[in-house]
């Protein structure tokens, strides 16, 4: 936060251990804590929502069913009928990221998706999975993916490295997109929050701009909620598209 006139927008991403000496001894940081919370909330929604098993669902059951159906339709529409096999993975991924993003908008909460280490780990896992799936389904034929059809063989030494780089760059683009969106949003929130404090304490002349900065922050919060949801969706649907490529190999 803004301590005495300087805007320190990045310290909010600093990790520190929680739960006192116990957490410190195993390096259990607040990021880990919020990962656990995100997982528990997802499970709680599903467990608590599906407990009644009513024909006409109540509120929580509707929410749980909608969550299921939205992800299921995303899988099947994007990957194809084989998408059902990947539903558990996509569901977990989507809700982990979604809750991580949304929890971060809540005051005092930590956004674990604003760390490149987290998003890069997830992206690496996705690409690893996609490659394994492709190898499993197509065997060594998978490597024809890197050689575009109808191209003279003489160009292969140039094109294959480019295709491989393009394939591997998904790791970077997938992780950086999520990380940059979350981090930029929270930096902006912090900067405008600091404006409110600094201008508001500048006396009468600062009140109007301070109110303006506060209004901007209100709008930014709404924008953040949009971005949080959208980025979780984007991550999940891109994973689906990559899986589609792996399954069908065109």
């Amino acid at each position: 936060m803004a301590a005495s006139g300087t805007i320190d927008a990045l310290s909010q991403f600093k990790l520190h251990t929680v739960f006192g000496p116990i957490g410190a001894s195993v390096n259990f940081t607040q990021a880990n804590l919020f990962m656990v919370i995100a997982g528990v909330l997802t499970l709680a929604l599903l467990w608590y929502g599906m407990r009644p098993r009513a024909m006409v669902p109540g509120r929580f059951q509707s929410a749980a069913e909608m969550a299921y159906q939205a992800v299921m339709s995303m899988c099947v529409d994007t990957i194809g009928p084989e998408g059902k096999k990947f539903f558990p993975f996509i569901f977990t991924l989507f809700f982990f990221i979604l809750l991580g993003n949304l929890l971060g908008v809540w005051p005092y909460d930590f956004t674990f998706t604003s760390h490149i280490a987290v998003t890069l780990a997830m992206a690496l896992f996705v690409i690893f999975l996609v490659t394994v799936v492709a190898l499993r389904i197509h065997g060594l034929h998978f490597f024809s993916y890197f050689m575009p059809s109808g191209v003279p063989v003489a160009l292969a030494p140039l094109l294959i490295p480019i295709e491989i780089l393009s394939y591997l760059s998904r790791i970077i683009s997938l992780s950086v997109r999520l990380f940059a969106n979350m981090m930029a949003g929270h930096v902006m929130l912090d900067v405008f929050g600091a404006f409110v404090v600094m201008l508001g304490s500048a006396g009468l002349i600062g009140y109007f701009p301070a109110a303006f900065a506060l209004a901007v922050n209100v709008a930014l919060i709404g924008f953040e909620i949009l971005v949080a949801t959208l980025q979780a969706y984007v991550f999940a649907i891109l994973t689906c598209i990559y899986l589609h490529d792996a399954v069908h190999l065109h």
């Binding site: 994007t78 780089l165 760059s169 790791i171 970077i172 950086v176 649907i237 891109l238």
Partner: peptide, 26 residues
Amino acid sequence: AGGLPTSALGIGLRVAVELVSALILG
């Protein structure tokens, strides 16, 4: 790529990320 943001800003960001990420990797 699957109903991703269709606003100009969304497309621009997406293109930029795609363009730069491969370069970073290279």
